[in-house]
Nucleic acid binder design. Structure first.
Length: 983
DNA sequence: GTGGTCTCCTA
DNA sequence: GTAGGAGACCACA
């Protein structure tokens, strides 16, 4: 190396972690291998190497190396055993990427350096010193503050993510001291991440000020008695020794015995074919193309290179130390096993995390109430260091669209959690409702302003339990939040199914008890319940802190336990493609809401009330007495007791059944009273559930109805909608449909409804691979008529409606895990006849029976079934000795892959549709609702014609490229002023 | 006031 | 026969 040469040193280990959190998660298409950080790394390296050949750019590297940490143990551990002892394990889907990034480096033909016993930073320090001595310059590709001590006249740093150079001036600007004092500064402040102790109570600001005053650490320690502030003085005197140890920990070693000298680092021209082979193996098509163009290689002629995927996390520092207690780990790469890193398989990591979580008890007394901005800033800085922020909002309402923020809690590491009260009030609320703001709370907007950049920071992962709620609320307050991880959704992906999928199955309390062995404070205990319940702003701040900080702490701990299971169980792709990207998509739908015309509902309510009143009079006349028609008990007594109608059946609890089915049968025999009761029920149902209830959900500010979608409450992967449920708005009767006319588009806009035609039958045709069904769907013919024609040997032409109706019932029955009992019930035919139909059906479509048998066998064998995208639904009770329980679980297990695959397909469509619309210049077309196989959009009138083909295209191809369906998907779409006409 | 039961709305 | 949510009633506390 000579004067004028320029050495680039990439801090590989540092980059991995930052890229992982900063970049959107990416998985290899073919097998779900997580490769997001690898992709970021390759793009960065390529850009750096390319710039090297472009002489227009100011800085041209002549020497180049990528440097990694070797292993857990370094000389610093000998000096201070606790060094980096409390680091948490890396995210599970990052682990395989450590090895891949080293392979990427070699594919670039760049030196990939690491030395046992030293950190990457020490090697960087050593090479930088050598380069300086040889008269060359050095650029360190990193933004790590630990490296800033090296910055000087010939050494600068470069942050590849922010495209920002860090020189002496930038260091001073950021830390208040020049680079040569960074060591002393860090010795004082310590580093919670690396477990460098420092002096308690001294942060960067104070440290800089002290160094300014005293010059350096030794002088400061010698003259500590001169410090005026009592606390500060005592702390420094007491912890002087810690400061000295800290200084030795943070001081980088610049005389590491190197294997490769500077001359080994001379930058070579890129080896196109070798690099392309690796990029192809990673399935990075864009970069492959770029490299091919730049190097003149023929990408098509190059085969993907073999790539080793290791799950042992080679040399990413001491992060896997917690694995000590876990199972024996497989050896590391050849030749490095003996002294190499703690090796750990995904399964071992899962075990280790679960054991650690169960062992680390929760200590509520350690939680902090943050009452001033500086403390909040310090916590948020910690989050930027860890790259992790567990967050939970406390509000006055369960509806995020109308809730007021009362405070929020954060956690950056297990046990380190705090609550930030913002608008707690004292109890002196008067007629105006107010009460006075309690003192000792950070001004609302100041706190949010501090929080905002961290929430938006792509390099800080925000973790929450049901984080969609917080996302919607915070977005409303002008605080967008990304990226996100949701412990509820992770649990849902891992353990979904009837055993845990029902309401509350993935709730925080349940998860905490199960995984942490800890029961969090119930909400009731802080806010009361029933009449005495108060909103959270009235809760005492100390009690609020215990409750709220615990939630953030628990969410973080759950995340540590649950996230690694995704990789171990092969469910990363399901989470990353079907859950995580949907959080903000659905959040936006909830935020938009849909306009509901109050006048229409009010008029309908009046109409329904009038008709129902008229029916009531007649019912009393026919019954000969007044009674509560809405009481099944009283009604049953009158109909089957006093009046003695025939055909009575009992419900499970021995009551007379008065279901519509029974009453219809009686009506069919010519009885007037049951008919009127059925009609009365329909009207009162429509009135109470819809026309009376819906106006109460119209938001005061937006004038729209904002339903809440639950992403984790079904066993199959469907969404559910509540408060109000907009997935059960009537459609089957003329009267009911009128309610749909109240769902309207804004003036100048239209509602677009796009729904999948027969999606579940198409999925069935695909998974069971039934030739006749596939053909029928390919030809676009009436599927129920085709079924009838096959079964009963009747031509489709001129088929009696009754024949088709029966075939249709059978088709649905198949999807539901058919039983003769159920089909008989549905069609009102004898059980024997229904059984004969089913036998006939299986005769004509033997593939269906094979599929059903295979599904049941899988469920019994593994305890779960899978959708075509790999989502699992667990049915452990399929092994029950109770025949009823077993049969029920068998039917559910047969239905789940069909219903669930359809649900996954529409989820995929929802994830893609916003971008597709935006790409077509239609970003003013907004998705509002999802009703299982239907999506509702609102669009300016002028956009409708252009939007419909885009929507249809996305929906019909939503399964691709993960699954190539054997049958086409078909979508019907229409636009109108209201939902009734659009559907 | 809470929880269970019945009924009924949807895909 | 599958998957949901909600309102009314009623017996329990």
């Amino acid at each position: 190396m000579k004067k004028g040469d320029h050495l680039f040193l990439v801090d590989g280990s540092g980059y991995i972690f930052r890229a992982y959190h900063a970049l959107p998660p990416l998985t290899r298409k073919s097998d779900g291998l997580p490769v997001g950080a690898v992709a970021g790394f390759c793009n960065m390296l390529w850009k750096l190497v390319q710039d090297a050949r472009n002489t227009d750019v100011g800085v041209v590297p002549t020497h180049f190396a990528v440097i990694f940490d070797y292993s857990a143990k370094t000389f610093r551990n000998t000096m201070y055993p606790e060094y980096k002892a409390n680091r948490s394990a890396p995210p599970d889907d990052l682990i395989p990427q450590f090895g891949l990034i080293r392979q990427a480096t070699r594919a670039f033909d760049l030196p990939c350096l690491e030395i046992e016993g030293y950190e990457a930073d020490d090697l960087i320090a050593t090479y930088a010193r050598l380069a300086c001595e040889a008269g060359g310059d050095t650029t360190i590709i990193s933004s790590d503050k630990d490296l800033m001590q090296l910055v000087g006249p010939t050494v600068s740093m470069y942050d590849p993510m922010k495209d920002r150079e860090i020189k002496v001036a930038e260091v001073i600007e950021k830390w208040g001291v020049p680079p040569e004092k960074m060591i002393d500064l860090q010795a004082l402040t310590g580093d919670s991440i690396d477990n460098v102790p420092g002096v308690p109570g001294i942060g960067p600001k104070t440290a800089a000020q002290l160094l300014e005053q005293f010059g350096d650490l030794d002088t400061l320690l010698a003259r500590a008695s001169e410090i005026k502030q009592n606390k500060r003085r005592e702390s420094i005197i007491e912890h002087a020794e810690k400061a000295r140890i800290s200084r030795e920990l943070v001081r980088l070693k610049d005389d590491v015995p190197l294997v490769e000298g500077l001359d080994d680092l001379v930058l070579q021209p890129p080896n196109g074919p070798k690099l392309i082979g690796f990029l192809k193996a990673m399935e990075f098509s864009t970069l492959t193309r770029r490299v091919a163009e730049a190097t003149g290689a023929d990408a098509a002629a190059i085969e993907a290179a073999p790539v080793d995927v290791e799950f042992d996390g080679k040399a990413h520092g001491p992060d896997l130390d917690e694995g000590d207690a876990a199972q024996p780990a497989p050896a590391g790469p050849a030749g490095e096993a003996a002294s190499g890193p703690q090796a750990m398989t995904p399964a071992a990591l899962v075990t280790a995390r679960a054991e650690a979580a169960a062992a680390n008890r929760i200590d509520r007394t350690a939680y902090v109430t943050i009452r001033d901005l500086a403390t909040l800033e310090a916590w948020l800085a910690d989050a930027r260091e860890t790259g992790i922020l567990s967050i939970d909002t406390e509000t006055t309402s369960l509806f995020p669209m109308e809730a007021e923020l009362v405070g929020f809690s954060i956690a950056t590491r297990p046990g380190k959690a705090a609550y930030v009260p913002l608008s707690h009030r004292n109890g002196k609320g008067d007629l105006l409702g107010g009460g006075e703001l309690i003192e000792g709370q950070i001004p609302f907007h100041d706190a949010l302003a501090a929080l905002k950049p961290v929430l938006a920071d792509r390099s800080v992962l925000k973790i929450g339990q049901n984080i969609k709620y917080d996302w919607v609320l915070l977005y409303r307050l002008g605080l967008p939040m990304a990226p996100l991880d949701d412990t509820m959704l992770i649990s849902y992906v891992l353990d979904g199914g009837s055993s845990s999928g029902n309401t509350g199955g993935h709730g925080m309390d349940k998860l905490s008890e199960r995984w942490l062995g800890h029961i969090p404070i119930p909400y009731k205990d802080v806010a009361g319940s029933g009449k005495s319940q108060v909103t959270f702003d009235m809760v005492d701040i100390d009690r609020a802190t215990a409750y709220a900080a615990e939630d953030a702490d628990v969410a973080l701990r759950l995340w540590q336990v649950l996230k690694p299971r995704l990789v171990a169980d092969g469910l990363t792709a399901v989470y990353e493609r079907l859950e995580r990207p949907l959080i903000d998509v659905i959040g936006r739908m909830e935020r938009r809401g849909i306009a509901v015309d109050r006048q229409i509902l009010s008029r309908l309510s009046g109409d329904f009330a009038q008709s129902a009143a008229a029916l009531e009079d007649e019912i009393y006349r026919l019954a000969g007495e007044r009674f509560n028609i809405g009481s099944p008990k009283q009604l049953g007594d009158i109909l089957f007791g006093r009046m003695g109608f025939a055909g009575a059946t009992k419900t499970a609890t021995g009551q007379w059944s008065t279901s519509a089915r029974i009453l219809e049968d009686l009506a069919a025999e010519g009885h007037e009273l049951p008919r009127k009761i059925v009609d009365w029920r329909q009207l009162t149902k429509l009135k109470s559930t819809y026309t009376d209830a819906l106006p109460g959900y119209i938001n005061r500010d937006t004038k729209r109805v904002h339903t809440c979608y639950s992403m984790a409450s079904t066993s199959t992967g469907r969404l559910s909608s509540s408060e109000p449920n907009l997935q059960n708005i009537p459609i089957r009767t003329v009267e009911g449909r009128k309610i749909r006319t109240a769902f309207v588009a804004e003036p100048g806009h239209k509602l677009i409804s796009a729904d999948y035609s027969q999606i579940e039958l198409r999925v069935l045709a695909h998974v069971a691979d039934i030739p006749q069904l596939r053909q029928a769907f390919a030809d676009g013919i009436d599927i129920h008529a085709m079924t009838a024609s096959e079964m009963f040997s009747v031509p489709v032409e001129g088929m009696p409606p009754e024949v088709r109706r029966r075939a249709k019932a059978i088709n649905f029955g198949i999807i539901y895990g058919i039983s003769a009992f159920g089909l008989a019930n549905q069609l009102s035919i004898p059980r024997e006849e229904a059984g004969a139909y089913i036998r006939k059906y299986f005769q004509r479509f033997p593939g269906i029976r094979d599929y059903m048998d295979a599904t049941k066998a899988t469920a019994r064998d593994k305890g779960f079934v899978e959708t075509i995208f790999g989502r699992r639904a667990h049915y452990p009770e399929i092994r029950s000795s109770n025949p009823q329980v077993r049969a029920f679980n068998e039917r559910a297990a047969i239905n789940a892959p069909i219903q669930g695959s359809a649900a996954d397909i529409i989820r995929r469509a929802m994830v893609r549709i916003e971008d597709a619309l935006a790409d077509a210049g239609l970003d003013d077309v907004e998705m509002l609702l999802q009703v299982h196989d239907e999506l509702i959009f609102e669009a300016p009138e002028s956009r409708v014609e252009k939007a419909i083909p885009v929507i249809r295209q996305v929906m019909e191809h939503a399964a691709m490229p993960a699954v190539s369906m054997r049958v086409p998907l078909h979508v019907d779409a229409r636009a109108a002023d209201n939902w009734d006409e659009a559907h």
